[in-house]
Design a protein around this nucleic acid. Structure first.
Lengths: 345, 345
DNA sequence: TTGCCACAGGAAAACGTTTCCGGAAAGCGC
DNA sequence: GCGCTTTCCGGAAACGTTTTCCTGTGGCAA
């Protein structure tokens, strides 16, 4: 005999009462509640989660699905642990646990999610690395699993998401470069399948056109969001017939590879070529010259994610009355030396 | 009516048979097994984890406890996601899921672990950031939860752990510096409470003594394992009466802070002061001058962790017959320019 | 035919909890 | 003293599985 039954016997009380006492339910004398609490503490009793989940149909856990090796901006190693802090600070307040569900490299993310959902191992989900058309969203909607997506898909539909302000970043980067006299501005981005790639390049195009600069597809370099990709971008950039004077990187880590390739070719970053990165983490500022990029608070992003998610969960929605919401997350420009020079002197 | 019952009814078969069919148990006709599998696939049935766990007393999940903000070497943001890949590659082979259990900053790790253990939310655990005396180990041993510790405690006892080869690193760093003529070698490490700090400094001391160099406590700078800590270390180093000519950093990220402080004071890293770091990640090589440090494969470490853990789990031990084991994880020296100069010229 | 065994599958118990329901005791107004 | 409500608690059902035990069928040897 184990668990609550043992505790009940030890107190010579029925298990129903013990359960009510522990869970703060009414219909239990304050006196006995105290006894129960004390005994539970003493015997180190904590309710078995499986039993509880089975009965309640709820797991008190929310899942954060992460994909270790997809070609996206979020894949950066430290990204998730960054948001985790913010997530937890609000989840803990509601006695919810966070479990990270890392999708194995060799498994299809959709299938993995499907399995996790069917197993009912979490009450709600946070997904990320959103594809431009992402079946996972339909799956979650259909399964009526509350969720929030970090990154929006283009498939429309009304679901809660938070996305980085790519449009703002692209616009602001273009504006900044144009103000310094640049007209031939390249951009390195992942393929259009990744929604991020699509949105970013599209915003870049529109920003250029606002300045009356014709959009040149040759200046869009499609590479992976990694240091390798940056190296590759540098390589392709050097092969262009008419060389751009500036480049915007969709992912900050690319800068390291780009610098490397440029130095190999004798091109001096920040002197012969202006560079602006994105999503500054504690790395870009160590480059020589330091990288101009856009920064955000991962922790705050985590808080916003959690609150958005809770707002969609019936059991918690009352604390967050606004209901499902969509947020464009702003980023702040951190000026460096990599785009300091001006062409108009 | 949901779940396996529905599936059984749909097939006009008893739920027991369905369960046996799905779980590959004997006593079920191959013909019917196929039908069941097909129907499950079609209806998207996956066994509810709570029900299964309750019955089996097993969750098919192993937990990785992480502490987001403790002053340890493992706390580096990207460390865990690095080992995660390796962990999963072997866990997946055994149909085990990995759940990360991040201990909230404001909760005592011991209490958090206790709660998780009592809730029976995972079958086994990986803990890290081991304290020199770590109550968690007793807890897990007493609760008979299979576990492996990343980092060993000094409390002895026979339990499986994997630890980095601090002794090897400290020895090799000292040897290398001494060979270049250095006699006054400082070290920046966290406090002795962290087992890592204790072992590292102790190894450093012994290595010095092997070279006939007297151990000088003033040269041991106790700081946090972070960039901030590195800055602080640089600061304290500059205040020393008799300046060391070299410094060993217990944590690679410290180098960034150290460089910063040195440059502020007009000391040139790798010229006036030799520097050796530890656990190279994709950052140290971006420093100017590039950091000499010790590297390891996080992925391989993850594989080793998983295999060690499985070996201690009765249900899986047969594949890993050696039983509980302790491993000292080797690191490889990556020479950089930060300690390139020699005093003996 | 009888007995035995192997095979396939059904019925039901069990896992640990929460929650619904009913009932005893006590309090209260009349 | 009587009916009513309130307070507290015990009994038992239910959650969805897995697994044990048992039954029925057919084949085969004696």
């Amino acid at each position: 005999m184990k668990g609550i039954r043992q505790l009940a016997k030890h107190l010579d009380i029925s298990i129903g009462t013990v359960s009510r006492a522990l869970n703060g339910k009414p219909d239990v004398n304050e006196e006995t509640r105290k006894r129960v609490l004390a005994a539970a503490e003493e015997l180190g009793y904590v309710a078995n989660q499986s039993g509880r989940s089975l009965r309640q149909g709820t797991t008190n856990a929310i899942g954060l699905m992460i994909e270790s090796s997809k070609e996206t901006v979020e894949n950066s190693d430290d990204f998730f642990l960054g948001v985790t802090g913010g997530l937890q600070s609000v989840l803990a307040r509601h006695k919810l646990d966070l479990v990270m569900l890392p999708c194995p490299n060799d498994e299809d993310p959709y299938e993995y999610l499907k399995r996790m959902v069917a197993r009912r191992v979490v009450d709600a989900m946070i997904i990320s690395a959103t594809q431009r058309i992402d079946k996972r969203i339909d799956l979650l909607v259909k399964a009526k699993i509350p969720f929030v997506s970090l990154g929006r898909s283009s498939s429309g539909g009304n679901y809660p998401w938070i996305d980085l302000d790519f449009e703002g970043v692209a616009t602001s980067a273009v504006d900044r470069l144009v103000a310094k006299g640049h007209r031939k501005i390249a951009i390195a981005a992942p393929s259009n399948d990744i929604n991020l790639g699509y949105i970013f390049v599209d915003s870049y195009r529109r920003a250029l056109e606002r300045h009356g600069i014709k959009y040149d597809p040759n200046l869009v370099i499609r590479v992976k969001s990694s240091e390798q990709g940056g190296y590759q971008a540098g390589h392709e950039l050097l092969l262009l017939d008419s060389k751009p004077t500036a480049i915007i990187l969709i992912y900050e880590l690319m800068a390291f590879g780009l610098y490397r390739r440029l130095v190999e070719a004798g091109v001096i970053p920040g002197r012969n070529l202006a560079i602006i990165g994105f999503r500054e983490e504690p790395r870009g500022r160590f480059l020589q010259p330091s990288l101009t990029c856009f920064r955000m608070s991962l922790r705050d992003l985590g808080v916003e994610l959690a609150e958005t998610l809770l707002a969609t969960m019936p059991a918690y929605a009352e604390s967050y009355p606004e209901g499902a919401r969509n947020t464009i997350w702003p980023l702040e420009l951190v000026p460096g030396e990599s785009d300091a020079f001006s062409l108009t002197s």
